[in-house]
Design a protein around this nucleic acid. Structure first.
Lengths: 343, 343
DNA sequence: CGTTAGCACTCTAGTGAGATGAGTGCTAAC
DNA sequence: GTTAGCACTCATCTCACTAGAGTGCTAACG
């Protein structure tokens, strides 16, 4: 349990370090004014805080920097929550006022806005297709061997994939099946699509249609969602501006990881399942390359169900208060917009 | 006009510098063996080559490095063309053997292969949609206010965009129009779509359909291609491995530019119009941030018309021979594949 | 007893003076 | 025409030294 004074000092140190990226000494804290003690007193407290594990010393004669535990305490107990609200609200409201009309574009645009506002890297997880339902299915022949399968979801997203057609199946048969699908499977959630295909339609199709096996293979391929979630990344190069990443090699491994969709998915998906804001500091992220990074995530939802998440990746020395404020507003607004959109 | 010996020496210097990134001295060239002269002789020639503008000296007591003019000469006259062929052919052939079946996926995958093979950054320009034609158009209502417009091109690419519907237009009218479009505009090149819409169908529609104005606005919006070319970037972070870009600030501006689609388009489009391979060295690229970069581009085509281009961006000290070899093979194979695909 | 001033101590970062060595340009000899 | 030899240049490395920031401890103060 920390004393009030210790909390003040810890808060001051984290604040200072966030904006300067330099170890902070007792004198500079004393001079800030909000902690009315002499450097000597502060030094004593700092020594205690270090013993408790909240601070670290790069070397004997340097100031202190927050440890992971220190950041965690700061985030959990000290972050001045509402500080960002007023300042940033304008930009975000202006963004939503633009009323872009495709979900995908909104998200993509939001990623850009986020990274520009924060100067960190933003990672947005698009609406989870699994939670949306089928609006329309279509199979469009390109030539005698191939066709494009188009799936439109209830949120207006369009997925398409090219499939090759077995020569045994005639065009008219194909059409029959597509019509059947559209009449029976519309409004079925995407993740149930395949199972319903077999359970509800299997029998009927087997009766009316020859080459059942081959046809099912085609449909299987067509309904398979290769990327069930889309990832939007923006401002990855902002990593390079952080002094702690001036070492090119380290930043290379981070940027490389950011190019890998599976890695990002793995980082964001746990957060997307439960609502609210989550902060993962340093090694709390699985990947050791992110040991010096923090990831703040929030979710947006439709009908109370979390649909996707928005995240900001930055150094552990991140402007937590500001970023959390911005993310909070954006996720609320995004949720509100989606609700308004799809009633 | 360079003497044979000068060419040999220039060639040796560029080769050496490409692999070492260090200024190369007379002694090391003499020791290579392929130039059978003493360091002193080579020094004399090097001084001449510097006077002629092919070489540069970072400072008096350093070796020489190739100037832009030197690289240009190397690329134009000295590149050992066929050296790469045999070595790299395997990987590329294996790639095409996989027979991915959607143009888009092939290109995207090709970008990855390229950047992995070369350790540079690859920039691919997707098939220019303008040169393809309409296969199918569809307008799919989402709710009473919005609809998804879907355009399928002759190469199987699917474009989609959300449009908002004016309340005056009824669904049945909408359907009539879409049917009309499909019967009249299929196989029309995309870039002629809008003009044909007005010239061929305008009159007829005006006769049969009320709310002509509003409807045309919707169609205008639906047929507008926001990105008529898609850009695929891969291996941007490979820039970070080059010793000349160890300065984080410089590499930041480069990576930032690479995130801007318009910049990339501007860099690649001139190259995509004329067939063959192009090398732009250093300041030959418009952007001053690319003063230390070279861009090698090749085009792939369909029916003899260049469709798009593939490019490799690296430091001026690039492995020209290898990259040009790889690009040559890949562009030929890509062309062959497209030809085979769409007959 | 909590707080503060003072002081010795530690350690990093920066500076400047050699020393090193790679590489050149020139001259003279082969 | 080619090469060996040599003086010269200049970046880089090393090392010692200094300055400065910051600490920990002790003793004094209210």
């Amino acid at each position: 349990m920390l004393t009030e004074r210790q909390r003040m000092i810890l808060n001051a140190i984290v604040d200072d370090y966030i904006s300067s990226a330099e170890p902070v000494g007792s004198r500079s804290i004393s001079k800030r004014g909000d902690v009315g003690y002499s450097p000597a007193t502060i030094r004593n407290e700092m020594a205690d805080l270090e013993d408790l594990g909240y601070l670290e010393q790069p070397h004997t004669s340097a100031g202190r920097i927050p440890s992971h535990k220190g950041y965690r305490y700061y985030v959990d107990h000290l972050v001045p929550w509402n500080s960002a609200e007023t300042a940033e609200l304008g930009t975000i409201r202006a963004f939503f006022a633009e009323k872009l009309n495709a979900t995908e574009q909104v998200i993509q645009h939001a990623a850009m806005i986020l990274s520009n506002m924060t100067n960190y890297t933003s990672i947005l997880l698009g609406p989870e297709v699994f939670h949306t339902s089928l609006r329309h299915f279509q199979l469009l022949p390109l030539d005698d061997k191939t066709a494009v399968a188009i799936i439109v979801t209830s949120t207006g997203q369009v997925e398409n994939r090219t499939v090759s057609l077995p020569p045994e199946i005639s065009v008219s048969e194909m059409e029959k099946v597509v019509n059947l699908l559209n009449s029976k499977l519309v409004n079925v959630p995407l993740y149930k699509l395949k199972s319903q295909l077999y359970s509800e339609l299997g029998e009927e199709m087997q009766r009316h249609i020859s080459h059942y096996e081959e046809l099912m293979q085609v449909l299987d391929k067509a309904l398979e969602s290769d990327h069930d979630q889309r990832i939007y990344l923006s401002g990855a190069t902002n990593m390079l501006t952080q002094p702690e990443f001036k070492d090119v090699d380290k930043v290379k491994t981070i940027l490389d990881l950011l190019e890998e969709t599976p890695t990002l998915l793995k980082m964001l998906t746990p957060a997307s399942s439960e609502a609210g804001m989550q902060v993962r500091i340093g090694t709390e992220n699985k990947h050791e390359a992110f040991a010096n990074c923090s990831l703040i995530t929030a979710t947006y939802s439709l009908d109370g169900k979390p649909l996707g998440s928005i995240g900001i990746l930055g150094p552990t020395r991140m402007e937590y208060a500001r970023v959390m404020g911005i993310l909070g507003i954006l996720s609320r607004d995004l949720t509100a917009m989606l609700a308004h959109w799809y009633k």
